[in-house]
Design a protein around this nucleic acid. Structure first.
Lengths: 147, 147
DNA sequence: CTACTTGCAAATGCTTTGCAGGAGA
DNA sequence: TCTCCTGCAAAGCATTTGCAAGTAG
């Protein structure tokens, strides 16, 4: 999925409006950084990339944007919390996590693989009483730089 | 995979010996609790189940056992860190994570599904310079109690 | 004006560490 | 005895929160 930045902003703006949140300049910038990054980003990284907001505002904005469903947390190999645009904005994807440096990058699988996977998961959980909302599939290994 | 508790202890004992760690009574109990739980367990839960060790020893033991490869950390829906025996001890498996209460439970997929999945992942990452060590596949949804 | 945001600093809460006493080989 | 382990308390860190000032509508 390739959503134009202008479309992303339109969606986020609407979601914010629905929740009585202002889509401030700071929040727009955060969204742009996350979309452009094409990988989950940590708060420290955001602070370096956009020193106009304080750390606390950063955390608050991430929580707000997550609560309206346009941003989501990602936990990788290290304990650092990373953030990325929700799948609604950038599409369903997976992560490859470097177990050495902790870096996280996105990748996608074909629709047919996703379909087979969802089928296998729902088959595996029939009778468990668990209702599936989504799956998370990451690969763990070593990135090019850390091999 | 069903590894008898005695076998588990034998493996862990050997790993500890190799690393000049003592396989103390406290550590044996921790391993037993983790194996019996059949799901990842948090430190607070461990403290309730086995109040003989202090919190700091708990953390230290988990770190030690993780460093010798017999225990691994699991991050679920909430931020709580959970621990489980390494896959070498209890076999490859996946987690179903309740997005409401944060509970994590184990489940398994058939060997053929795992094989197809590994193939799809390695196909998806050819040329990326990333070397895959393992995959992590979890389902997120609602458990029976939280529906 | 009124409500939502921000910065700053203090407070949390989980996890780690220093140190002295305790236990196993 | 020598080394590793444990408990206790203090320290670290990432994240959260209270409060007063700032700003958009």
């Amino acid at each position: 999925m390739v959503t134009a930045l202008s479309d992303v902003h339109a969606i986020v703006e609407q979601r914010c409006r629905d929740a009585d949140l202002m889509y401030t300049k700071g929040r727009r910038e955060l969204i742009e950084i996350l979309v452009r990054a094409e990988r989950p980003v940590t708060i420290p990284e955001l602070l370096e990339l956009r020193p106009k907001l304080t750390q606390s505002s950063m955390y608050r904005n991430m929580a707000d944007l997550e609560s309206v469903g346009v941003v989501q947390k990602v936990v990788g190999a290290d304990e650092r919390t990373r953030f990325e645009p929700a799948e609604e904005l950038i599409g369903h994807h997976h992560h490859r996590i470097c177990e050495v440096c902790g870096e996280v990058a996105d990748f996608e699988l074909s629709a047919s693989v996703e379909r087979d996977l969802d089928q296998a998961l729902s088959d595996a959980l029939v009778g468990s009483g668990f209702s599936i909302r989504s799956h998370r599939l990451d690969v763990v290994g070593r990135c090019r730089a850390c091999r």
